[in-house]
Design a protein around this nucleic acid. Sequence first.
DNA 1: GTCTATAAGACGATAGAC
DNA 2: GTCTATCGTCTTATAGAC
Lengths: 180, 180
Amino acid sequence: MTDDPDTRERILTIALELFAAQGYAGTSIAHITGRLGTSKAALYYHFGSKAEILDALLAKPFAAYARLVESGPRSPDDLLAAVIDTTAESHDVANLIANDPSARAVLRERTRQLDADEINEALLAELAGPRPSVARRVRAHAAYAVAKQATLTLLSATGRITPATRVEILAAALRALGNS
Amino acid sequence: MTDDPDTRERILTIALELFAAQGYAGTSIAHITGRLGTSKAALYYHFGSKAEILDALLAKPFAAYARLVESGPRSPDDLLAAVIDTTAESHDVANLIANDPSARAVLRERTRQLDADEINEALLAELAGPRPSVARRVRAHAAYAVAKQATLTLLSATGRITPATRVEILAAALRALGNS
DNA sequence: GTCTATAAGACGATAGAC
DNA sequence: GTCTATCGTCTTATAGAC
C-alpha cells in the first residue's frame, strides 16, 4: 500500500459534509484542506482532481442504485422498500446526486455508466408497469417521491429512520401508488 | 425609468436557466454575459452583485410560498392543492430553492425573512395537525413529498401539469396522508 | 506522505470613456 | 446602457524539497 487509507477517508468525510452544505462547485480544495489540517498538495497526493473526490464519494451508492435497477421486476412492495433502504443507507450522497446541479453537471461529462436520471427513469417505469395510463404514471411518480424524498426529509428532520418509520413510509408510498 | 427592462429580464431568464443546469456557484457572470452577448460591466449596470440576481429570481416565488404559510389553517385538500399549484407555477425556481446547496448557502446569509426550510416546516406542521403521532408526522412528510416532488419530476418529464394530472397528484397525496 | 511555493487562469466587481 | 481595461482575490493543480 502506498496510500494512507486514514487520510483518504478523512478527505471523503469532510468533502461530503462540505459538498452537502455548500454544493460541489461552492466548495474549494482549500476549504477541504482547511478542515483537514494539511496543505492542498497533500490532498492531491490522494486524489488526482476535485472531480475524483466526487467520483469516489458516489461510487458505492451509485452501484447500489444500479443493482436496484438490474435486479429486475419484482412487486411494488419490494421495489419501494428497496428504494427506501438504499436511500436511507446513503442519504447525504443520495441527496448530492439527486439535488446538487453543479455535481450533476460534472457527472454528466464524466460518467460512462447509467446516470442518475436513467436510474430514476428505470425504477419509475418498473413502478408504472407496462403500457401505463397517464394516471398510472402519475401514481408511480407519487409513490417514488414518497419512498425517496420523504425518506430524505425525515432523515434530516429526525436523524434516523426507525423500523416503525420505515413501515409507515412504505405504507404511504403504496397508498400513493393506488390499489390497481 | 433609467433602466432597460428588456435587458434586465433577459439576464434573469438566462441566469435561471444556467443556475438550474449548473448551480448558482457553478455559473459565472462571464457565463451569463456570454449568452447575453454583452460585457460583464453591462450586467453590473442592472444588478449590483451576483447575489442580487438570485434575490430577484427568488422574490416572487418566495412570496408565494410565504403567503401559503400565512393564509393559515385549512383542509389538507386545500393545502396540498395550493402546494401543487405554487410549485408548478415556479418550478425552476422552486427547484433552485429546494435543491441547490450553493444557492441555499448564499440565501442563508442574506435573507432576513422566513427561509425555505421554515416554510417547509410550517406547512408540514399544518399537515400533521396538533400534537401529531410519529405515524402522522411520517404521513405528512409523505403527502408533502408527493405534492412537491412528484409535481417537480412530472413537470420536468412531461413539460406541463394538465388538469387531469393535477387531480391525480392531489389524490395520491391525500392517499399518502391517510384517512384519519 | 506532506511540505512550501507558484504557475496559470477564472472569478466577482469597478473605473472611466463613450 | 454599454464598452474596454483592469484590480485583487480565489481557484485548480503542479514542481520540487524533505
